[in-house]
Computed example of a mutant assay.
Amino acid sequence: MLDAECNGFLYEIQVVATDRKNGNKLMSFQELSTRERERGSKDALVTTKSIKVEVCIFVFDIMFFNGEQLLTLPLRERRKCLKEVFPETRPGFLEYAKEITVGTEEASMNNQDTLCRINAFLEEAFQSSCEGIMVKSLDFDAGYCPTKRSDSWLKVKRDYVDGLGDTLDLVPIGAWHGNGRKAGWYSPFLMACYNPETEEFQSVCRVMSGFSDAFYIEMKEFYPEDKILAKKPPYYRTGETPDMWFPAEVVWEIRGADLTVSPVHSAALGLVHPSRGISVRFPRFICKRVDRNPEECSTAADIAEMFHAQTRKMNIKSQH
């Protein structure tokens, strides 16, 4: 597949678990993480027969090709180079990331055809179990900027779109000391749901996104040293060990991309998986729920129901 003259390339890919026996259906990240890999000594090998989860490589971009750095080239030209490196693809094994192109003359909020195309493309991504899409500039300010955020690259994820994603009412039960810019504040926070059957607060996720600096200051005042608990209460159930434990006093609305099985968090333990709980991927703070008491937050049964109802399915039997 590669040109014999090619003397090196560096490209951006994503490795995704795929079900080749079911139309190359994409599978969840948790299923990919269970894929057999080398462990222990350097002589340990993974046999073909031991691999239960197949993977597909999706190619997104290229940064280096035949001795030339391509970072400053616009995306349109980098895509041409990609086709030189990989002139052929193989569904379920090596594929280009799906894409659509919107020209300057089409890029208008009043162009209904363009809006329909973009919405359909986004919905197709969600239905294919993708987390979202990337919107990239093709020609203007369209270089590759590693480790740097740019307005010419925008993420549109499931939880960024109104009406999509799972919204939960959760209780902060602990936190870690912040680092870097967040030094002196609490970040991230450990969030929990409530199980009325066992009268436990069960951890769901860590959240560190969606907060303003003013909110961090407010939380530092809300949880002073004398309010921090001396040890974890017996009715807090989690595999996490935060730097401090908080009393269950407030409820926050949290939005996430999807729900997944977790070996650390205990939400809905036994309701979906016999030995693992449920966690939220990419959680983000939305607002405080001043109208709810901690025992009125999302329950373990609520989370189990949302897990089973979500579009992005995963094979529970593969989670050992």
Rank of each mutant, 00 (worst) to 15 (best):
L2E: 14
E5L: 05
G8E: 07
G8I: 09
L10R: 10
Y11W: 14
V16T: 03
R20V: 13
K21P: 04
G23M: 09
N24A: 07
N24T: 07
L26Y: 11
R35M: 11
E38Q: 10
D43I: 14
D43C: 07
A44S: 15
V46F: 10
T47F: 10
T48E: 12
T48N: 08
K52L: 15
K52S: 14
E54P: 05
E54G: 11
V55F: 02
I57H: 00
F58H: 08
V59G: 08
F60S: 04
L70E: 04
L70A: 06
R90Q: 06
R90F: 12
G92F: 10
F93P: 01
F93C: 13
F93D: 15
L94E: 08
A107R: 10
S108M: 01
N110S: 12
N111Y: 05
Q112P: 03
Q112A: 12
T114C: 15
C116D: 15
I118L: 15
N119K: 04
A120Q: 11
L122E: 01
L122C: 06
E124A: 12
F126D: 07
Q127E: 14
S128V: 05
E131G: 09
I133L: 07
I133W: 04
M134H: 02
M134I: 15
S137E: 05
S137Y: 02
L138H: 13
L138M: 12
D141F: 07
C145N: 10
P146E: 11
R149L: 01
L154P: 05
V156P: 03
D159R: 04
Y160P: 00
Y160V: 08
D162A: 14
D166I: 12
T167F: 08
L168C: 09
P172F: 12
I173H: 03
W176S: 10
G180Y: 02
R181Q: 09
W185Y: 15
W185F: 14
Y186N: 03
S187D: 13
P188V: 11
L190Q: 07
A192S: 15
A192G: 09
A192I: 07
C193H: 00
N195F: 00
P196Q: 13
E199K: 15
E200K: 15
F201H: 02
F201N: 00
C205L: 14
R206A: 09
M208I: 03
S209N: 07
G210F: 01
S212Y: 00
I217V: 10
I217Y: 04
E218T: 11
K220L: 12
D226K: 08
K231G: 03
P233Y: 05
P233H: 06
Y236H: 01
T238E: 03
E240Q: 09
P242R: 00
W245L: 06
P247F: 02
P247A: 08
P247W: 03
A248L: 04
V250W: 05
W252D: 02
L259P: 10
L259W: 09
V264I: 14
L269M: 14
P274V: 05
P274Q: 08
I278V: 15
I278Y: 02
R281S: 09
F282D: 02
P283M: 12
R289T: 01
P294R: 06
A301M: 05
A301C: 00
I303W: 10
F307R: 04
H308L: 06
Q310F: 04
T311R: 01
I316Y: 00
S318Y: 01
